[in-house]
Design a binder for these strands. Structure first.
Length: 607
DNA sequence: TTAGGGCAAC
């Protein structure tokens, strides 16, 4: 590669077949012949070479070698260029070596290194670079913190982030809006809502990105109603939402099951000229799916101007969670025919579809397809094992499910054991259930649903002594069961019902209607299943608990209120708290209900 | 030479 044709000047010869980009380079060097020409090795030449080779790590490494052999490596800016380019390619270990060899790197380079680690999701490394910087008394600048804070947000504990926040204040950078936005996101990640609110509220200028970050963080933390509240507040202060805002708002509607509000938000976005790109449309598709409205999801999916893997996976999962297993599997094969490569999420939908339809063999086939694919991206993960355990368990193959878990090449997590516990509960296998529960309570001692499952199973077996024990353990561990509720959307309002709830102003009519409906179905042979009610109560009382279950109340209300022919949708996602929903309604300018909800459903959670 | 926010499952 190197030829010394002049005693004081170095030249490089670029073989064009290995350096296609060198054509550009040679022409810049004003050469006549297009191949293998010696070019003076100047700093400018290297800069040009680096620019034209920025997307190939091999070429960059060759240039590095060249720099080393020519002694030009002293030139800091060249190394900086090289390092920046390698960072963009995610070559972090190489970058780190390069960085460590440098003498007193400038702040720009420290920032580049931290940024590179964050982009490669090596958050601990990013934080430790910052720490090293701090120890060496390198003064950070306003470009340092957005990424350092981002890294801290991904660490297991908040203390590092708190310390960094203190540094931000010390260096007088707390009002730099990007730094503040990242701090806000960090506090939200750790559930420190008050801190996030404070940072947002005391911003010098709340720009669109800050609004979007906060709203998105709310959605990601399950605070969908707060997100919608902020969305409303945003328009009050005259900030126009963009595609990112719309995605968060639609996602919030999906979580809350507020289909009509979501439709309004989408309609407004269209009217306001928001760029409704594929991400917006995928979120809308997902909202329909989460609101149980597969009939709206289907045409949207079919008419989407462009579809990507997420669109396909969402639709497949949509079919699977709404009980249309065959459609899910058909869509999966159509997807493959159209040459779209599935990933691990797609397979979750596919296996879930098999589970719902009791297609054990098919489930196995898809699972092995994943394992044998050789594709790293679709190797079975814990979630797939959990899904398979659920599939086997539902179909009654409890022992098989158990040995399947035992044969797992990866450590099973609570989700996997939880799936088996669920199956034990369905099939009332108390012995295996007990064993599983013991394992589970060690891994996840404060997950309410496992305790409830266990308690229900003991109740079904008439082991009230054990029921008490589970409840005692829940109290001891401070496990609180989340009250299940059901919601029906009517007249742009979400009407929420807890079990046994009589706080709705129309309660008398609702209960009257419910009585009529229950008598009708009883005459058709319906027997309430009283075995799994949480409490050891008399059968009659259990029947009351079951028949005033939140879902039944919601449906009775729906039947009274909603025009015949208008669908009553089941929301598959309702998990938000009631006060949250109220806040959402209020903030969206919807009428607040005058009733209060006080009672709680203890029979079982929804879904 | 540098910078922030968004989609699918648990």
């Amino acid at each position: 590669m190197l030829s010394k044709t002049h005693p004081t000047k170095l030249y490089i010869i670029l073989p064009l077949d290995r350096f296609p980009s060198a054509v550009h380079f040679s022409s810049l060097a004003h050469t006549q012949k297009p191949s293998n020409l010696p070019v003076p090795l100047t700093k400018e030449a290297f800069t040009t070479l680096l620019q034209s080779c920025s997307s190939s790590q091999n070429q960059l490494k060759q240039i590095h070698g060249l720099l080393l052999t020519t002694g030009i490596s002293i030139k800091n800016s060249l190394i900086t260029h090289l390092l920046t380019n390698l960072t963009l390619l995610g070559e972090m270990s190489y970058v780190r070596q390069l960085f460590d060899e440098m003498h007193k790197p400038r702040i720009f380079l420290w920032n580049t290194l931290i940024k590179g680690y964050v982009k490669s999701e090596l958050h601990t490394e990013a934080a430790s670079v910052y720490r090293q910087m701090h120890l060496l008394s390198v003064r950070p600048d306003r470009f340092t913190y957005p990424f350092v804070v981002k890294a801290c947000a991904e660490l297991p504990q908040l203390w590092a982030g708190g310390a960094v926040h203190a540094h931000v204040i010390k260096y007088g950078l707390e009002f730099v809006s990007m730094v503040r936005t990242e701090l806000m996101i960090m506090y939200m990640r750790f559930g420190e809502l008050d801190w996030a609110d404070f940072l947002f509220g005391s911003m010098v200028e709340q720009d669109l990105v800050a609004w979007n970050a906060l709203i998105a963080a709310c959605v990601q933390n399950g605070l969908a109603s707060k997100a919608l509240g902020l969305f409303r507040q945003m328009s009050v202060v005259g900030m126009k939402p963009d595609a990112v805002t719309t995605v968060s708002a639609l996602s919030a509607c999906g979580q809350l099951g507020c289909l009509e509000i979501g439709e309004e938000i989408y309609g407004m976005a269209r009217k306001e000229g928001v760029d409704c790109n594929i991400i917006v449309e995928n979120t809308r598709l997902d909202m329909y799916v989460k609101c149980g409205s597969i009939d709206m999801a289907r045409p949207l999916f079919n008419k989407m101007p462009q579809r990507n893997l997420v669109s396909w996976s969402t639709m497949i999962l949509g079919y699977a969670t709404n009980g249309e297993s065959e459609q899910a599997l058909t869509l999966f094969s159509r997807m493959q025919k159209e040459g779209v490569q599935p990933n691990y999420v797609t397979y979750l939908g596919v296996i879930a579809a098999c589970g719902h339809a009791g297609l054990v063999n098919e489930g196995w086939a898809y699972f092995s397809q994943m394992a044998q694919s050789g594709d790293n991206n679709i190797q079975p993960r814990k979630e797939h094992y959990a899904c398979m355990v659920d599939l086997l368990g539902r179909a009654g193959y409890l022992e098989e499910a158990y040995s399947f878990i035992k044969s797992m090449p990866i450590e099973p997590d609570a989700g996997v054991w939880g799936a088996l516990l669920g199956a034990c509960s369905i099939h009332q296998d108390v012995k295996l259930g007990q064993h599983v529960a013991d394992l589970l309570f060690e891994v996840a001692p404060d997950t309410a649903s496992y305790h409830v499952l266990m308690s229900n199973m003991y109740a079904a077996a008439g082991r009230w002594d054990f029921v008490d024990k589970v409840r005692w353990r829940m109290r001891k561990n401070g496990v609180k069961k989340v009250a299940g509720y059901s919601a029906v959307e009517f007249n742009h309002e979400s009407h929420v019902f807890y079990g046994g709830d009589r706080s709705h102003p129309e309660s008398p009519y609702i209960y009257e209607k419910l009585e009529v409906l229950l008598n009708q179905i009883k005459s058709l042979g319906y027997m309430p299943k009283t075995s799994s009610v949480f409490h050891d109560v008399e059968t009659e009382e259990k029947e009351i608990t079951i028949k005033t279950h939140s879902e039944k109340l919601a449906i009775a209300f729906g039947i009274i209120k909603i025009t015949p022919g208008y669908p009553i949708r089941e929301n598959t996602q309702a998990h938000a708290s009631l006060c949250g929903l109220d806040a959402a309604r209020a903030s969206l300018g919807l009428e607040l209900p005058s009733y209060e909800v006080k009672s709680f459903d203890v029979s079982h959670t929804n879904n």
